[in-house]
Design a protein around this nucleic acid. Structure first.
Lengths: 199, 199
DNA sequence: CTTTTTGCATTGCAGTCGCAATGTAAAACG
DNA sequence: CGTTTTACATTGCGACTGCAATGCAAAAAG
């Protein structure tokens, strides 16, 4: 086996370029040649690492999900051991919101993929599992931290929906970041009772 | 002026076909020829009523928004005079969720347009105004109906976000319609206090 | 050394795209 | 009547698309 190169690295390089194109011009502008140009490589090389466009798209979708997962994991582990459920949820959900330009770019790509998968149900299965896992985690936190007034499952569905909806509105530029964060805190107030965050 | 035809009617016919194509295959499949085929007319006729593709897209986007507005207006007026704020909000928000196949199709198109406008900020201004108007209305209802415990503005942002997020998850097939409705009612419980709906 | 496999570049092809140009039929106007 | 204006239909062009095919250099294998 000659000229060993790191396949994952190359694919990640190409996927990065793809996401740059998608964030700036939409998924419809993602073509072999555009991505190649954005990555500064030849179109043939892109074709060498992704035999079809769909294969490239699927890989990029996986990258988006892994990025989000890494972000959440990092933010949570930075909280130290056994944080309060409310703090944990607030940290996690705020991390998932497109509050800075980097996350906005990722969010635009995620939104484009959301519309993409809405028409290709086969690809949407992975997202389904991700939501289910997230939902279970959030419900557990609510169960642990909130008073027993409300059904944790239902409250978790609502809380995740708030996060998702705020993300959409933020991407559309309808709200300022502080408005979205205030709405998120208000939602947590409703679930956990009013509690001014320390610091 | 010869051969008088109703321009609005023709444009609506074409826009209907466009939305059928967009709902089934995504916005990227919306081309002059595809739309013409779906409408059962020639491509030249489409070009006669929309000089550019962008003009056609913009018109279709307006149609989506008008459909939603009409749906909400109809559902609200069916409530009779002076309904309770909570009832009003629940009716309105439930009407905006993609709970049946017709609204799912519209929702897929709306989602596609959302991703579309995320990359074309100039087109997004109209959506911005719509959100602001909706937000003011929801805030007024909350102010009128909920106890003074919470800031109506923030609560309105959260409530709209819940609706939007539930819509996204419903389109992705992550939740059943009854799960989404239960989450919506839970959210209203949080704002207005637990109150079993009559009937 | 030769052989073989891999990495990548280039080229070409069939198809689709938006859009302009052109043609034609028909109806209102003078 | 003729003229003009509207409502389409058809054709064609340049640009772009995904993708297959082909070529070629370099490095590992024997």
């Amino acid at each position: 086996m000659p000229k060993r190169v790191d396949h994952r690295e190359r694919r990640a390089l190409i996927a990065d370029a793809l996401m740059r194109v998608a964030a700036e011009q939409g998924l419809e502008a993602v073509s072999l040649r555009h991505v190649a140009a954005a990555a500064g490589v030849s179109a043939g090389m892109v074709q060498h690492y992704f035999r079809t466009r769909d294969e490239m798209m699927t890989f990029a979708l996986a990258v988006v999900r892994e990025r989000n997962e890494a972000r959440v994991t990092r933010a949570i582990s930075a909280l130290g051991a056994a944080p309060a459920p409310r703090t944990l949820l607030r940290t996690m959900l705020a991390e998932l919101l497109p509050l800075d330009e980097e996350r906005r770019a990722d969010g635009r790509v995620a939104l484009a993929f959301l519309a993409y998968t809405a028409v290709r149900p086969a690809v949407a299965a992975a997202l389904h599992d991700e939501t289910a896992a997230l939902l279970g985690f959030v419900a557990a936190q609510i169960r642990a931290g909130a008073e027993g007034r409300i059904d944790p499952e239902r409250a978790a569905v609502g809380l995740l929906a708030v996060m998702e909806g705020l993300g959409i509105y933020l991407l559309g530029g309808h709200y300022l970041p502080e408005t979205a964060l205030a709405a998120l805190d208000t939602q947590l107030d409703l679930l956990f009772g009013p509690e001014p965050p320390p610091g």
